[in-house]
Computed example of a mutant assay.
Amino acid sequence: MKKGFVQTENFKRLREAEKLVAKRGAREAGLVIVRGVYGIGKSELTERWAVDSGYVFVRAKETWTKRAMLDELADKMGLDKRGRNQEVQARSSGKLAVEMVPMILDEADFLIRSTASLPEVRRDITDLTGTMCFLVGMEHFPLKVARYGHIASRVARVVELEPLTVGDVKATIAAKAEVAIDDELIARIHAQSKGRMRLVLNAVANIETWAHANGWKKVEAKHVDGKVLCTEFNGQQLGKRRAEG
């Protein structure tokens, strides 16, 4: 599979939110929540966007403490991590204040715990610098943020990432597949994947394997009749296999 970044409809939603929030009145209201179901491609989309745009991208961890969060932010910006928490935070804030590039925090559900201590660290940095921050989480993440009014009041926009359209799937295949795939099969990939990027990429990988094994230059729907293009593990599948065994 080829490397490549696909500008899907979800990417367009992110860019539109960025443009709108850049024009905000209160500079501290620069928080954008990005939410979507699992497998839809949130991490791949936002990380590649960050890399291409020069933004700061950090994936939150369940084990994060305040210091671990500050150290990882400093790492991403190539800054010295030595010293007290406030010194490391000051270096990150200073660099962001000068460069004014957005931050993207993926797996942001890990930030919300019994207290708002980790979001408070982020708030300190973005309030001081006026930097835009994208928090990327699961579909119920906005409800977690809403528990903390002083954090929620800084949310300028919520971006809902949607399942891929047929056009998105076609663009993804054009950018990433090493073999040509006909439109009928593209529609089948879209249907079986339910518009989830993870499953689309799995389907492309499977089709490429079959194509290379059979010497197909272009894969048509009839070539893979009866084959499952992409599978998603669940408990029902496991139960079925045990029953069959």
Rank of each mutant, 00 (worst) to 15 (best):
V155T: 10
G25T: 00
M69A: 07
D182C: 08
A68V: 00
L118T: 12
E107Q: 13
Q86Y: 15
L161H: 06
D106G: 09
C133W: 01
S43W: 05
A175H: 09
I186V: 11
R82A: 00
F5Y: 08
R67W: 08
A187N: 15
V6Y: 04
Q236Y: 13
A17L: 02
K240M: 13
V88C: 03
Q236T: 12
R154Y: 02
Y148G: 05
K42G: 06
K3E: 11
R59W: 12
E107W: 13
F110W: 09
E16H: 10
F141N: 07
I181D: 09
A205Y: 01
W64K: 04
S193T: 14
W49P: 00
R123Y: 06
F233W: 10
L79W: 09
M1K: 08
R15L: 13
V32N: 01
A60V: 07
R27D: 11
L105N: 04
M77C: 08
T63N: 01
P142S: 13
A22N: 11
E99S: 11
I40Q: 02
Q236E: 14
G54D: 10
R147D: 10
M138T: 15
L96P: 03
L45C: 07
N85P: 01
F134P: 09
A180S: 10
A90M: 14
A175E: 11
W49M: 07
A22Q: 14
V179I: 11
L111I: 04
R241W: 11
L96K: 03
D168M: 04
T209K: 06
M103P: 03
V145A: 13
G39M: 08
V219M: 01
G83C: 05
L164K: 06
G25M: 00
G83L: 09
A180L: 08
E220R: 01
E208S: 01
R48P: 03
M138N: 15
G235H: 13
R122G: 05
E162F: 09
K144P: 06
E160I: 01
L70G: 09
F5W: 02
D183A: 01
I207P: 02
A152F: 15
R15P: 01
K176G: 01
A68G: 00
D52C: 08
E99F: 09
D182W: 05
I104Y: 12
R59H: 14
E232T: 07
D75T: 15
R13I: 04
Q236H: 06
G4V: 02
R241L: 14
I151T: 13
W64G: 00
